[in-house]
Simulated assay, not measured.
Amino acid sequence: MKVAILETVKASAGFELEFDRIIIEALQEAGHEPVMMMPAGTVLDQNFDVPKYELSGGSIISYDGVKGLKKVWYSYLRETRRVKWFDSALEVAEKEGIDAILLTTATYRYLRALKKSKLRLGNVPVNFIFLGVNPSEKPKFLKKAKECLPYKNIHLCVTTLRDDFGNEKPDNVKLIKPPVMIPAGCKSKSAADVLRIGFFGHYRKGEKNIGWLLNSITGAQFKIPVKFIIQLAPTTEEDRQEVEKIVDGWKNDKRVEFISHKLLKDDWYNAIQSVDVVYLPYTAERYLYNWSAIYFTAIGAKKPVLTTKTLNPEVMEKYSIGEYIDTTDYEIFRNQLEEFVNNYETNKAHYNDALEKANQEYSKSAFIRSLF
């Protein structure tokens, strides 16, 4: 099939384009012909090396750095343009013989625009891919989903590890498991003589217990050499100053290496490939409902994890790909980290076996089969 990815959210590097990249690779591996649809004049940070079709209706609207009334205005502009992009997408699809359209990071707001667009009345199948639906969004999502029931070409695909809908799920909604987020060209690097544990993400003061991880360097009793690779990409000026203090305080300790800038595109995957274990201390409630991109990158890279019982718990309930950590008590955390490190060589084969099985269930090919 000739399948178009309709990208209207961002042209700059980030999750949206990485998800597009993964889906394009998966489509190609399955024998499909992926193409891109974008508002006219859009220049992506990545070259996917697939045909591109331009849409009329205006340029992409970015919320980066926008606040207050200006953001309200931008929100109105984005929705107005989204209707025009949808109309244009139908015209392009019919003209160019496109068999299906994918919107890869949809929200219920897309369905609001869809109701005003000709796209809902076409014969081209349109798959809206949602990255989970949390309890606060669920009533709005269900309302919009039911309004789409008369449109037989519209399919709503929720990527999730759980079923929070039960009998409420409309017939046009399908639940599918998310894919591993690793490009085909990225291969796992062989482990070095030292066990490398990596944390990757933004730094916000007080979040993610980075202090506990650093304290364990001197406070824990490790029986094998360990090195911590810690990304601390600040998001504010205050955070930047805090990061500088942390890095300066540990600059002479060879057991820790800091990355204080953003990691984009292949740099992101290469950094994750360079470690043996990925540290995932996330505890926000949203991770019960929305799958974590870095978690599924770690799975795709076949890296054992240190994670919490809040972060996509369905994975560890089925596959023992690592160990849990406690984020409420430092002594418990330190003991868990010690036990994990000191038993790593004994348990590594078990983790690897579980990772192989997880990769089969969450494979990109399984995702494409479920999607269509």
Results as ranks from 00 to 15, higher is better:
residue 275 V to G: 01
residue 288 L to K: 03
residue 323 E to K: 15
residue 292 S to L: 02
residue 264 L to G: 10
residue 283 T to Y: 13
residue 251 K to V: 08
residue 254 K to E: 15
residue 284 A to L: 13
residue 309 K to W: 01
residue 276 D to W: 03
residue 324 Y to K: 10
residue 248 D to A: 14
residue 258 F to N: 04
residue 254 K to I: 14
residue 277 V to I: 11
residue 316 M to T: 02
residue 326 D to L: 07
residue 269 Y to M: 01
residue 252 N to A: 14
residue 323 E to R: 15
residue 254 K to P: 10
residue 266 D to R: 14
residue 262 K to L: 14
residue 328 T to A: 05
residue 328 T to C: 08
residue 255 R to D: 07
residue 288 L to F: 06
residue 261 H to D: 15
residue 292 S to K: 01
residue 328 T to H: 12
residue 260 S to C: 15
residue 281 P to C: 08
residue 242 E to N: 08
residue 300 G to I: 03
residue 305 V to A: 02
residue 245 K to W: 00
residue 317 E to H: 10
residue 302 K to A: 00
residue 264 L to C: 12
residue 267 D to Q: 01
residue 260 S to T: 15
residue 267 D to N: 07
residue 242 E to D: 11
residue 288 L to D: 02
residue 301 A to R: 03
residue 301 A to I: 06
residue 285 E to Q: 13
residue 253 D to S: 09
residue 313 P to L: 01
residue 313 P to M: 00
residue 266 D to A: 13
residue 265 K to Y: 15
residue 331 E to M: 12
residue 314 E to Y: 01
residue 330 Y to I: 06
residue 243 V to C: 04
residue 312 N to M: 00
residue 321 I to N: 05
residue 293 A to W: 06
residue 244 E to I: 05
residue 288 L to E: 02
residue 293 A to K: 03
residue 333 F to W: 05
residue 276 D to A: 05
residue 326 D to E: 07
residue 271 A to E: 12
residue 324 Y to V: 05
residue 242 E to M: 03
residue 253 D to T: 10
residue 302 K to Q: 05
residue 246 I to N: 04
residue 294 I to C: 02
residue 268 W to Q: 08
residue 296 F to C: 05
residue 268 W to D: 06
residue 324 Y to H: 04
residue 263 L to H: 04
residue 264 L to S: 13
residue 306 L to N: 00
residue 275 V to H: 01
residue 299 I to C: 02
residue 298 A to T: 04
residue 298 A to D: 00
residue 326 D to C: 07
residue 282 Y to S: 09
residue 303 K to C: 03
residue 258 F to T: 06
residue 283 T to C: 11
residue 253 D to R: 05
residue 265 K to L: 13
residue 326 D to S: 07
residue 314 E to P: 00
residue 323 E to T: 14
residue 245 K to S: 09
residue 295 Y to A: 07
residue 257 E to V: 13
residue 291 W to Q: 06
residue 325 I to L: 08
residue 265 K to G: 12
residue 253 D to C: 04
residue 272 I to H: 05
residue 242 E to A: 10
residue 257 E to C: 05
residue 330 Y to K: 03
residue 288 L to C: 07
residue 270 N to I: 14
residue 288 L to T: 07
residue 294 I to F: 01
residue 256 V to D: 02
residue 252 N to P: 10
residue 280 L to P: 06
residue 306 L to I: 03
residue 308 T to W: 00
residue 321 I to Y: 06
residue 249 G to K: 09
residue 263 L to I: 06
residue 279 Y to C: 04
residue 327 T to M: 15
residue 295 Y to H: 10
residue 262 K to T: 13
residue 246 I to A: 09
residue 262 K to S: 13
residue 306 L to S: 05
residue 242 E to C: 05
residue 320 S to N: 09
residue 294 I to A: 02
residue 282 Y to M: 08
residue 267 D to W: 02
residue 287 Y to R: 10
residue 321 I to A: 08
residue 317 E to G: 04
residue 286 R to A: 15
residue 261 H to M: 11
